[in-house]
Nucleic acid binder design. Sequence first.
DNA 1: CGCAATTTTGACGTAGTTCAACACGTGTGG
DNA 2: CCACACGTGTTGAACTACGTCAAAATTGCG
Lengths: 247, 247
Amino acid sequence: MTKRGNPETMSKDPNNKYVDCDNCAMEPLCVPIETNKQPLTLTETYLSRRISTDSGQALFVKDEPISAIYAVSSGTFKLTLNNENNEEKVMGFRFAGELIGEDALHPEKYAYNAVAIGKSSVCKVDVSELKACCEVIPNLQLNLVDLLTRQSSISQTEFQALIAKKSAESLLAAFLLNIAKRKSAHDGTKDSLNLSISRDNIANFLGLRRETLSRIFSKLQKEELIKVEGKQIQLIEFDKLTHLANL
Amino acid sequence: MTKRGNPETMSKDPNNKYVDCDNCAMEPLCVPIETNKQPLTLTETYLSRRISTDSGQALFVKDEPISAIYAVSSGTFKLTLNNENNEEKVMGFRFAGELIGEDALHPEKYAYNAVAIGKSSVCKVDVSELKACCEVIPNLQLNLVDLLTRQSSISQTEFQALIAKKSAESLLAAFLLNIAKRKSAHDGTKDSLNLSISRDNIANFLGLRRETLSRIFSKLQKEELIKVEGKQIQLIEFDKLTHLANL
DNA sequence: CGCAATTTTGACGTAGTTCAACACGTGTGG
DNA sequence: CCACACGTGTTGAACTACGTCAAAATTGCG
């Protein structure tokens, strides 16, 4: 029960592995249905597996009516808004195993743009098909509730550091720990981070300028709390970072 | 179908009115069940209406296992965290008609403290009873999904100004507009705001110091964008405020 | 390789913080 | 009834973390 999906679409890049389906937030909508005794596999009616996306490609844009919800199966996505000057504001990131667009179920239109960072891939659940299937299989609704609340909890932790409006140093510490935790849930690595995200995107998300972010990276490295090698970040002093993050 | 609940528990304070049930986010879990042909009213098994709370009283505290989800029926609540120095961080507010604790359904423990600001009251849905009822009435699950996604959308709008990390002025403009919008959804008033929240709590939420917030209030008043009379705020230049809020 | 994009570093400006003082309302006790 | 403490809100003056501008260093892609 590890890798499903079409093998020929699988990435060869070792840094861009597909997440295991049993580590994916979409699982409640995929797995159980396959194993129950329906005449045909119900998931096929609403689920498309591992669709490749190019870097910079948008899954959807803000205010588009919802048509599907997605789970990242490899790579990274950024969630963005554009202000009235058409400047981009990054409001979050989604990594392999996490959901995108699930929070559009109510107003029925997406609340942000979802853009691939680097080559990525997603699994896609068609919403109207899903709703039809929910009529047939009541248990599917419970799975949906579970999935919604699960992802909502991840989104919350992502915001908490930002909301606390702390020093730039403490913001970065919290950010690194958050990413490390979310990534480790899927790829096992604990203190080493492959940051696929550019400094610009991180700075934008944290509400800092790229220069400030760069200075903080240097500072934390000089103090030997982290080791920076381009996009590869080592978390050395986990405890001190945690303390910093908690203000 | 306006006011339900026990009349003797109703507030007499005109500034602290109960929200109409049909304007309440909890409605999907209350109304429809009352009107369907069950032998007994199912809501009674999981719903307690209009429980009074004193100012400063906590509905629940962070990390407590989830037992119920709440809808504010009158008054205001603040959602808070405590950092390691036991300082309070306000992460949001909930007004009449809005939900509290619904986002604890997944990790099954509350993610924050919920504390009444001034005398307030809530309707309470017992989670284990609710789950039991979901088994009996599948449609209830769909209502739950609706309710979860709806509230999640409100929470998002509350954060968006903060995430954008703008100037203090623009933060306050966005905050006032957000509150005005959320309150007007229930009490009709559009440009006049009864801010039940103290300046300290607002400043804390916005990540500003109380002195800064006070200066900005004065500035916006001097520029005649708002009129400040203690907790009563008039939004005068709606358009200019909106522009400010959008950076 | 070579050029453009990204990241880092330095010098200076400013929005918001900090600290301190004051003003106002409310509750308490003599 | 006043004296006093205490919570809340406002204002002034000096300080500082982060932003801005400019330029160098590094990375990465065609």
